[in-house]
């Protein structure tokens, strides 16, 4: 029983360490826009939804 717990704990520890070290693998070719998924940050709120009352 104890050995089982120990092995599970060791495995968990190893996983935690690995998770910390791993990096996302495939990097898309930065020079080709084809299929690139990008994020665009916009600021602020849409004026028409602003409150009109106090």
């Amino acid at each position: 029983m104890k050995r089982k717990i120990a092995s599970i704990a060791a495995a968990t520890a190893a996983l935690v360490v690995l998770a910390g070290c791993s990096t996302p693998s495939e990097a898309p070719n930065p020079d080709d826009a084809k299929g690139q998924n990008i994020t665009f940050w916009l600021m602020g709120v849409t004026p028409r939804t602003l409150s009109v009352t106090t």
């Binding site: 104890k2 717990i5 120990a6 704990a9 060791a10 968990t12 520890a13 935690v16």
Partner: peptide, 8 residues
């Protein structure tokens, strides 16, 4: 065992 358990 206790030491291993404390690792995570």
């Amino acid at each position: 065992v206790p030491y291993v358990l404390i690792v995570p």
